[in-house]
């Protein structure tokens, strides 16, 4: 009996500590934006809209959110398009060297990271004039995400039965018709997963835009966060906290949407 009580107390203490550990850092994000002249301190907010006003008036803040959207949507669209074409062909046609290619893709996706490749990517961008180009950055980000995306999508395509396509083929559908009428609708959940994964990845990416975009007009929110300083060189907490909140809301919404629609299925290695 007492053992049970002790264990219950232990369990709830553990839960309380974990809750505190994970919740404490987040408190500031939900209080400071609504506080007049916030400090690092967590205070009961006075619900002023002034900080949001300041963000609206900031020359780059809202523009950077738009930039983030351009980068994330552009990259996700390219990743989904190219990865699905490649994954479909690799899943359905035994191209020469296919298995070696897949193995190489798997390796590439895990070993070549922004950290290891930052120097040459920077140089490459400078050399071919892709520095300060959003399109260039989108292509670079796409190249980085493609191997893992192809790998995950191929798994998905392998598990959809081939008889649908064969059936359409006997009815006389051309390969492109088969892809458009049959394959894309069938693997739509897989495409959505990859799209969300790519969106989240680019939305949070700091290093690549930080290296490759120096024009503030083009920088995404992740980089603009680090320019929100006062004239005195101190972090401008009003802008920082409010902007951080605005910048976070889309990913939270996307997470809620995904977990509701697809039950947040677990895909090993989906985020890095």
């Amino acid at each position: 009996m007492t053992g049970f009580v002790v264990r219950r107390i232990g369990f709830y203490t553990f839960v309380a500590v974990v809750l505190a550990f994970f919740a404490l850092p987040l408190l500031w994000l939900v209080t400071a934006p609504f506080t007049d002249t916030p400090t690092y301190e967590v205070k009961v907010p006075d619900f002023t809209p002034a900080n949001f006003q300041a963000i609206v008036e900031h020359p780059y803040a809202l523009g950077s959110l738009v930039n983030s959207i351009i980068l994330a949507v552009g990259t996700a669209a390219l990743v989904v398009l190219f990865a699905s074409l490649a994954a479909y062909a690799l899943s359905r046609v035994r191209l020469p060297g296919r298995d070696a290619l897949l193995y190489a893709l798997l390796l590439l996706s895990s070993i070549i990271t922004g950290t290891a490749a930052m120097v040459p990517l920077f140089q490459l961008a400078v050399t071919v004039g892709l520095i300060d180009s959003q399109l260039g950055l989108i292509l670079i980000l796409t190249g980085g995400l493609l191997p893992a995306a192809i790998f995950m999508l191929k798994d998905f395509m392998d598990s959809t039965p081939k008889s649908y396509e064969e059936s359409a083929r006997v009815f006389g559908a051309s390969p492109l018709q088969i892809v458009g009428h049959i394959v894309v609708p069938l693997v739509r959940p897989g495409l959505a997963t990859i799209a969300v994964w790519a969106l989240a990845n680019v939305w949070g990416n700091f290093l690549m835009p930080y290296l490759l975009l120096s024009d503030v007009e083009k920088q995404p929110a992740a980089v603009i966060m680090y320019t929100l300083y006062t004239e005195g060189g101190q972090p401008n907490l009003r802008l920082l906290s409010t902007f951080g909140l605005l910048y976070s809301i889309p990913v939270v919404l996307m997470y809620l949407f995904v977990s509701k629609k697809y039950g947040f299925r677990f895909h090993g290695g989906i985020k890095r």
Partner: peptide, 18 residues
């Protein structure tokens, strides 16, 4: 296959689920 003018029913019917 499309040019042969035959029609086929598969064992799993292959009805398009969407």
């Amino acid at each position: 296959p499309g040019a042969r003018d035959v029609a086929m029913v598969f064992q799993d019917y292959a009805l398009f689920p969407h």
